[in-house]
C-alpha cells in the first residue's frame, strides 16, 4: 500500500450545509464508526490535509474560500463531496445565491450520496479517495501529472 493510502488526513469544509451532513461527518469519528481505523486524522489546516471533505453547496460568498482551501493543500489531493447539496445544490439549488454543486468550483473525486449522507457511506468515500490519492501519486511518480477522474457515486 502506498504511504498516502495508509494515512489519509482530512480537512472538512462546511460550504453551506444545513449541518445534517456535518453531524454525520463527525459521527465518523465516534467509537461506532472510528475513522481512525484507516489512519484518518481530522486536521484544521489544509497544508496538513490530504483529502478535502465538503458538505453543502457553493454560493457566491464561499466560493473563493473553498478555492483557497483547495489550493493550499499539497498535491496530490482528493476532494469528497458529501450529500445531495454538494452534488447539485440539493433542495437549495434554486436559491438566488446558490451556484450549485461543489464540482462547479473545484474538481471532485468522490460523490457521497444521501440527505444526509450516512457515516458508512462517508467512510467508504474517504477510503476510495485514499485509493485515488495513491494512484495519483504513482502517476506523478512516472512523471505524469495526476489526471482528475470524476469518481462515481458510491
Amino acid at each position: 500500500m502506498s504511504t498516502l493510502e495508509k494515512s489519509p488526513w482530512l480537512i472538512h469544509y462546511d460550504a453551506s450545509s444545513c449541518n445534517g451532513c456535518d453531524i454525520e461527518v463527525l459521527a465518523c469519528l465516534t467509537p461506532v464508526y472510528d475513522a481512525e481505523r484507516f489512519g484518518c486524522i481530522v486536521t484544521g489546516d489544509p497544508k496538513q490535509a490530504d483529502i478535502l471533505l465538503v458538505t453543502g453547496s457553493v454560493n457566491n460568498l464561499n466560493e473563493p474560500v473553498l478555492k483557497n482551501i483547495y489550493e493550499q493543500m499539497p498535491e496530490p489531493r482528493a476532494v469528497v463531496a458529501i450529500g445531495a447539496c454538494a452534488y447539485s445544490g440539493g433542495v437549495f439549488a434554486d436559491c438566488y445565491n446558490v451556484k450549485g454543486g461543489i464540482a462547479k468550483v473545484i474538481p471532485v473525486d468522490v460523490f457521497v450520496p444521501g440527505c444526509a449522507a450516512r457515516p458508512e457511506a462517508i467512510l467508504d468515500g474517504v477510503v476510495r479517495a485514499a485509493g485515488l490519492l495513491a494512484e495519483r501519486r504513482r502517476a506523478m511518480g512516472r512523471g505524469k501529472r495526476g489526471t482528475v477522474t470524476e469518481g462515481e457515486a458510491s
Binding site: T3, K6, S7, P31, E36, P74
Partner: peptide, 26 residues
C-alpha cells in the same frame, strides 16, 4: 482508542503518518 471503546489505528500508524508527511511537498 481502547479507552474510548474504539478499535483505533494500527500500532505502526505513527510511522505511516511520518512517512507520508516526509513524502509531501509544502
Amino acid at each position: 482508542a481502547r479507552m474510548q471503546g474504539r478499535m483505533g489505528p494500527p500500532l505502526l500508524q505513527p510511522f505511516y503518518d511520518l512517512r507520508k508527511l516526509f513524502s509531501r511537498r509544502i
